[in-house]
Nucleic acid binder design. Structure first.
Lengths: 336, 336
DNA sequence: TTGCGAAATGACAACGTTGTCATTTCGTTA
DNA sequence: TAACGAAATGACAACGTTGTCATTTCGCAA
């Protein structure tokens, strides 16, 4: 190549090449209608010829905003894909990009630490994705000039939060059993630390207690099928067990397999409901009824909440995204 | 509040409050050792009191770099979580943040378009995650000053690429059958557009042809269990079918269920291998042997490749991350 | 042609940092 | 105490944009 490639082509270079002033180039970019067509063309050709690209840093410095929303991933789990997808789509639509950081593996990151790091990056607002408890949750104060939204089932004293209605969903699923004549519902939990497991358990308890039923001891699982299977083996021996609510579909499948291996039929002997509605992907002709949360919608709401709050960072709101019970045939109606 | 909250606290404000010069504040941040401890303390208290946070835009403008790597998500699939996780961890470790944009749903984004949008954002280099073909793949030219890495199984004439060794993995899996006395291997594919499905099919074909075996017609699936089940029903009727390679675990499970429903046993009558090794999460006591790709490692490699190439954006390399066959008991050794 | 208001363009400062180079202060030694 | 070199600090320009306000050019009517 004969051309000396200058490291960066600035608007000034373009201006000189086009024989206009710096400000005119700026105008071509930001308010094209205010510049004569002939001038505009000259500038455009010059930009083309030089390979001009606007400098993000200079622009944001002048404008005082970045057009980016920060996302902190405290825990990156399976369901997070759809949520990120929602966040990214909504951001795209509103003309924002995302700036992302992640908790280091093993590190114990607090909200304050996350906020500190984020606020050094190009962001106008931020979203925390929090699926487990952190030490400083209640005492955390968000930067006054940076709208902060936390995705978490817990209410926060100062920040806006967005969440699936995990507790409500669990309650609904549980009531679905009770409304069909089941006298009791057993529960298989996920990992202890997971807030979603805790909330689902809470909803299950609440639904039973609302009908004056003493909740049986929940069975501890770890989200995977094998732990569900172990729980299923235990439950198969309980004569009063007609209904099982498992905190996710994988464990629900484990439970079903154990029941089958013990000679019991689903739903004829025992009814089962799971969460997340993803078993159909893996099991042909799946019969599992499942409470599904709309993670994508959750992400969209979270992003919209941040954008809406950009001008009033200290505003506070609480959004719950309801779940949907996907009905299949794993629940028997005992009344009929 | 009595305090007038100025919108943004600058280093100048800190300097005045601490009774030192602007430059000294800068030094406290960037080269603390070069300033006397007593001065440093004064500055630190001032920063604390005023709530100073360095301005990203100004800093990057001066430094000419952002400390961010761009990630373009063309397709956000399930396996992408682990990959993003790897990218994010590696970025974290090397002191980079991620800037992310996503193809709009329905929009047909080209590499050129993605590059154009990314280069307006705060990034020093970028990673494209490409799981399907795009129109301008072969003709695409990356910005000369922005290191670009494409995650895709295809080789690119100009850019560095990183990929799982899908083809090699499929070949290995296929040879695993052949080495155990199987005379032929059937293949159940994923969605047609997916490059990973195409590559896995290619590897399967290559392995058979290398032994002079004519590959049978592949069965078309869509990644989900039901399509695997349908394929399984067909395969159950083929007397020469002793080995099935399914392009993912879900379909493999579908195949196994169909075979069972047809009265055939896995592995006694038919052997099966899947991909991704995730069935154990959903199926208790899973017996499925599966070719697993290290998505996390893939992400790490991609990020490292970008960072390594920051100084020489036009360098080009090709990285393949090999897969691992996770052995369980779904393959019968016909020689014994 | 001249004059006028509107449209188009330009000159210059400012955004908040860091690099360069000059100046001040410090601790030592003569 | 004076003189010195090293360490600490400061003044000022520069990074590449956009906002403000002044100036030039244009189209049109007189």
């Amino acid at each position: 190549m004969a051309t000396m490639d200058k490291k960066n082509v600035s608007m000034n270079d373009v201006a000189i090449a086009a024989g206009v002033s710096l400000k005119t180039v700026s105008r071509v970019i930001n308010e094209p209608d205010s510049v004569r067509e002939s001038t505009r063309d000259k500038v455009h050709s010059a930009m083309e010829a030089l390979g001009f690209r606007a400098n993000f840093a200079a622009r944001s410095l002048k404008l005082g905003r970045y057009g980016c929303i920060g996302v902190v991933l405290f825990h990156l789990s399976g369901g997070a894909v759809d949520m990120i997808d929602g966040i990214a789509d909504a951001a795209e639509e509103r003309g924002f990009a995302l700036t992302m950081i992640k908790k280091r593996a093993g590190e114990k990151m607090t909200l304050a630490e996350a906020a500190r790091r984020m606020s050094q990056l190009p962001v106008d607002g931020m979203i925390f994705n929090l699926r487990q408890m952190v030490d400083d949750f209640d005492t955390f104060e968000a930067p006054k000039d940076l709208k902060t939204v936390i995705i978490t089932p817990m209410e926060h004293p100062a920040c806006s939060t967005v969440s699936d209605d995990q507790e409500g969903g669990a309650r609904m699923a549980c009531e679905y059993f009770l409304n069909r004549g089941h006298k009791n519902v057993y529960f298989v939990s996920g990992k202890k630390e997971a807030l979603s497991s805790q909330c689902r358990m809470k909803g299950w308890r609440a639904a039973l207690e609302a009908r004056g039923i003493e909740p049986p001891e929940p069975l501890q699982g770890d989200w995977n099928a094998d732990s569900g299977y172990a729980a299923g083996l235990v439950l198969a021996d309980k004569p009063d067990c007609t209904a099982v609510l498992a905190a996710n579909d994988c464990m629900a499948n484990g439970v079903m397999m154990a029941l089958r291996d013990k000679g019991l039929s689903v739903p004829d002997d025992v009814s089962v409901i799971g969460f997340d509605d993803e078993l159909y992907k893996t099991i042909p002709n799946s019969i599992l009824t499942s409470m599904k949360f709309r993670h994508r919608e959750l992400g969209i709401r979270a992003l919209n909440e941040v954008v809406a709050g950009l001008e009033a960072p200290s505003s506070r709101s609480r959004t719950l995204v309801s779940g949907v019970l996907v009905e299949r045939s794993s629940v028997k109606d005992l009344r009929s």
